[in-house]
Simulated scan of single mutants.
Amino acid sequence: MTSDTTSSDTTGSGVPATATTFGEDTVTDARELIARYPQSRSALLPLLHLVQSVEGYVSQQGMTFCAEQLGLAEAEVAAVATFYTMYKRKPCGEHLVSVCTNTLCAAMGGDAIYKRLQEHLGSDGAPLGHEEVAGPPGESGSLMLEHAECLAACDLAPVLQVNYEYFDNQTEQSAVELVDALRRGDKPHPTRGAPLSDFKTVERRLAGLLPEDDDEFWTEVDGPSQAVETVRGAQLAADRNWTAPPAPEDVPMPEVEAK
Rank of each mutant, 00 (worst) to 15 (best):
E68L: 13
S142N: 11
S40Y: 02
C100V: 03
E119G: 01
S7C: 05
E119D: 09
V27P: 13
V97Y: 05
V58L: 03
Q118F: 04
A81M: 09
E255I: 06
V51E: 13
H147E: 14
S197A: 15
G125H: 04
Y114S: 08
G223E: 13
G122D: 01
E94M: 11
A106R: 03
H120E: 14
V162R: 09
A258S: 14
H120M: 00
G56L: 09
D214C: 12
G14D: 07
A112P: 04
G93A: 03
M63W: 04
L47A: 02
L50T: 04
P158R: 08
P158G: 03
E149H: 11
R183Q: 15
L50R: 02
Y37P: 00
A19H: 05
D239C: 05
T64C: 06
C100Y: 01
S123W: 12
D155L: 07
C92M: 15
S53C: 06
D186S: 12
R192T: 08
Y37D: 02
A107G: 12
D29V: 13
V179M: 00
V15F: 11
D213Y: 03
W218Q: 02
M1H: 06
M108R: 09
V221G: 00
T101G: 05
L178S: 10
Q161A: 14
E255C: 05
S174K: 01
T101Y: 04
K90Y: 11
Q170G: 07
A112I: 05
E203N: 09
L206I: 08
S140W: 05
A79S: 13
F65S: 05
E32H: 09
Y114W: 09
V15M: 15
E249Q: 12
W242T: 00
M63V: 04
R240G: 12
G208T: 01
G110W: 00
L96A: 10
A157H: 00
V99Q: 03
L210W: 09
M63G: 04
